[in-house]
Amino acid sequence: MACFLVSAAEAVVVTAVEKHEEKKEKSEEIRVTVDAPVKVPMSRKLKWLTYMLWGGVILLAYEHVWHGEVVPWFPFLTAMSDPGDAAEMFHEMATIGVTMAVIITVCWFIMCKAADAIMARKSQLPAVGQEL
């Protein structure tokens, strides 16, 4: 009914945090040493999550328009016009909506850990010109 709204709320929060993190990283002095392993910046990781969340939200919102659950006029959600339907919608948001947001966040967390592991592995490779 409106399960995508939970992910949309998460997407708004994560986008704000990502922008803040990006600003913070830009203002910090960048010190790169040859031996230091290349780390994936937090802002980059958060960008992955925002892309997944916004992408999912846009495509699911389209699905809801398709099924007539979202309309372009007030109150935009057809379930809001009836108290019984509204209660069902809130229950759906609390169950399916939260599960969707949790699945995406857990997958993103695993992805970040995998990216860190890959970067650590890559940095152990011999430098160019160095014998294997």
């Binding site: 892309y51 997944m52 969340l53 992408g55 999912g56 846009i58 699911l60 949790v102 699945i103």
Partner: peptide, 21 residues
């Protein structure tokens, strides 16, 4: 292509949640 990859995986994971229920 990164944007498209994240969009499709994001939507797939969200529909997976829907499919579980």
């Amino acid at each position: 292509l990164g944007l498209l990859v994240f969009m499709f995986w994001g939507a797939s994971l969200m529909w997976l949640g829907d499919a579980i229920f």
